[in-house]
Design a protein around this nucleic acid. Sequence first.
DNA 1: GCTTGACCCTGACGCGACGTCAGGCCGCAC
DNA 2: GTGCGGCCTGACGTCGCGTCAGGGTCAAGC
Lengths: 249, 249
Amino acid sequence: MNVGEVAALAGVTVRTLHHYDRIGLLSPSGRTAAGYRQYSPADLDRLHAVLLYRELGFPLEEVAALLSEGADPAEHLRRQHRLLRDRLERTQAMVAAVEKEMEAHAMGISLTPEERFEVFGEHDPAQYEAETQERWGETDAYAESRRRTRMYAKEDWLRIRDEGAEVERRFAEALRSGVPADSEQAMDVAEAHRQHITRWFYECSPEMHDGLGRMYVEDERFTAHYEEITPGLAQYVSTAVQANAVRQA
Amino acid sequence: MNVGEVAALAGVTVRTLHHYDRIGLLSPSGRTAAGYRQYSPADLDRLHAVLLYRELGFPLEEVAALLSEGADPAEHLRRQHRLLRDRLERTQAMVAAVEKEMEAHAMGISLTPEERFEVFGEHDPAQYEAETQERWGETDAYAESRRRTRMYAKEDWLRIRDEGAEVERRFAEALRSGVPADSEQAMDVAEAHRQHITRWFYECSPEMHDGLGRMYVEDERFTAHYEEITPGLAQYVSTAVQANAVRQA
DNA sequence: GCTTGACCCTGACGCGACGTCAGGCCGCAC
DNA sequence: GTGCGGCCTGACGTCGCGTCAGGGTCAAGC
């Protein structure tokens, strides 16, 4: 196969293949009399590995080092698999973070700067690999512990969302069964709401909660959020929250 | 906040912030008398969005365009969420591709070049399919080259294959002696199969195993591998594996 | 046999997104 | 007042290619 075909197959440009040849990362195993590059199946194998490592963020020099370590193909597949799964987890964490922000935004809550930036931590795969390898070796225990702590974080988040949804459900049910918004029962739900915010997001005093209550009917985004659950719920929640604020004061 | 603090918080270098200032992507809203950059919370918001878009692969110029479009924050969050989910899908596809290749490798099956590269970029398979098939598909050279590159870690490799063959032998025997594919006994062999993969290749969850099971009857090369051992074995293994996946869940 | 157009070659320069000094000013502590 | 860490502005370097420029190659069609 000559460059053009390989390029089309692998979804890269001819220039890229020239570049890889020049820097010695992937030199075709043959040339025609006219000097045309000829790629063998083994070259394609190598290209495949190169592209995967590149996609994972490794600088080409390190890719070359990895591939010349004399590791067998299965070893590379295992490593690529591990790195891809790390990336999957990381992306999931970012999705969760964005969802959290949407939720917070919908609730009118502002996250702390640390919280917002925490997903942008160490993530350079090359650096990560070298560093952890040095520090912990390649122990499964370490990988396992990382996996589990991330799981916990995710589970926590799911619990938070479930709890929030539960409070909203209780509000909606109270509204549906005709319980007055300023009754004891509705105020108890409002208090649960305040506790929920305090426990998971920030110290929410009764006055702050009162402010939130007002915002729930003034801010159209929040109103929309609650109206979507049940018509009239925004006003209902607002009233209950403010009544509860008075009771707590 | 001054540059150093912001840099530490966001996990970028000071130089990066200088760069963003220079190109007008993120200019701090203030300066001290001495010329020190002063970042406001709003600047942090913007930086957060910048870093997310950057992470998603947007060139900085486009990030600037996106952010100056005057879209509200929620719009950006929605877009980022969408892009992240796309990325999640793509990564999952790549994980699946690597798993398929490991499986193929373990069985001594070679995938076609198009198949191996298909996760990279979207090219029209029909265009090159016939051609490459003809050229590489079944040639001895291709098989030979693959066989040779596979020889590296010979001893380990032989052990792994022996173990795999043993599992296949147990499957074949169960089939021959009329043990139902969804019986306890067959499922136990399936579980041994899953453990084998986990031990030697990658952490194979029940769902992943379920996916493999389906592949054994959908992909003719895998089917052929099993049918060569005993007619009906592909379907048998597939059923047992899927039954076991249900049991493990 | 000759032209034509697609494909290939090797420089060589350009670019995006920073890294990395160099040389010098600020600010707070001791 | 003298360190010492942090900040400033150039300015050049690097990585992974993109993009011409100038020229040879190959299969097809006339």
